[in-house]
Design a binder for these strands. Structure first.
Lengths: 196, 196
DNA sequence: GTCTATATTGAGATAGAC
DNA sequence: GTCTATCTCAATATAGAC
């Protein structure tokens, strides 16, 4: 079988295990079983488990910075950002990878690099976007807004996927109504700016 | 040695291990070493590791609901809430326990119970508090506000403790300035209400 | 590339002496 | 309560045949 294909299947299987049972459930045996091969072959493709974890991260967030840039340059940046941030699979996976990075230096460095670049892109875009949304950057600086979006997405997804009875569906609905208001405000404000 | 004391020391040691290296680093051997006893004695006090994890949770959040109630009934509810939510130790510990609960049903049920009760108390208090802060519950319902506080605390603490270069210190400062504004608004509004 | 076999380490948990 | 000793299982990783 083609090596590239098997690599891909191993990474995909690992992602599924993480999503289903958490990062601590990942082992060469279990990944091998999911793909239908022997455990030692996992080590042929990924000599250490750390490299497998890093591959899972890269697969998910390889184009994360570019995607975030295009989201922020698109027609409804806030709505698109919220949608991307509150995607259950992506959010849960990142939470798990960050937790796993606790004891895996290679993974930690990679997560840190991506987190830093994403924040840089977000802050840069928000500097010009916030006034368009009618938000005063003196009151709500870019880092505040970025932290709020990311944090609320974490909280909602975690409660949803963990099955906590904290009314996360109501929270999600309220957040989306707020995004509606923001996008409507921006549409009004930018229309007026064009008219001037 | 007194049994209660040793139990307490085991739970405290487990908490330290979780905070330092994550929940996956907890093992009977490692906890025993931290306390200076044999691994088998850990199983004498906590027959299964699940019970040890639950004990860590109970120790931290045994009075969590009462504490949250008194925070919300205190003089500056938002400030106190933010301070409690953004405490690094508590936040990291809860994140790890929720992740560990992924594969530990007993722990999951206990976390879910506490999360649900906390949210109920928070929402109940916010119904009367939000107007005092000048926040329209139609725009920002209690579940929205509760999710925002908890989520932003998660995000800030995670970036701070993981050492991510996402400018979490600036985010924390901006959030605290916003809390200042909210508390000042409430002070003004409630003073006016008393004057009427 | 893929396998079998194995070295090594550590895990959770139990038995039984003291 | 606390220990030593041990069972059983699974982990990462490597060696070497094919």
């Amino acid at each position: 079988m083609a090596g590239a294909d098997k690599r891909e299947r191993l990474v995909a299987a690992t992602e599924e295990i993480i999503l289903r049972d958490g990062y601590a459930a990942v082992s060469s045996r279990r990944v091998a079983a999911a793909v239908g091969i022997q455990a030692s072959l996992v080590h042929y493709y990924f000599p250490t488990l750390d490299e497998l974890f890093v591959a899972v991260l890269r697969r998910r967030s390889g184009r994360a910075v570019e995607r975030m840039s295009s989201i922020l340059a698109g027609p409804e940046p806030m709505r698109a950002w919220w949608r991307a941030a509150s995607d259950p699979r992506g959010s849960v996976l990142m939470t798990e990878l960050i937790a796993a990075a606790h004891r895996r230096p290679a993974l930690h460095d990679e997560v840190a690099r991506i987190a830093s670049e994403l924040r840089r892109v977000q802050v840069g875009a928000l500097e010009s976007l916030l006034p368009q949304y009618g938000l005063d950057p003196a009151k709500f600086p870019p880092v505040f807004v970025a932290t709020a979006i990311q944090g609320m997405a974490y909280a909602v997804v975690q409660d949803e996927t963990s099955g906590f009875d904290t009314r996360p569906d109501e929270a999600r609905a309220a957040i989306e109504r707020f995004v509606d208001v923001l996008e409507a405000q921006r549409a009004g404000l930018t229309a007026r700016a064009v008219a001037d």
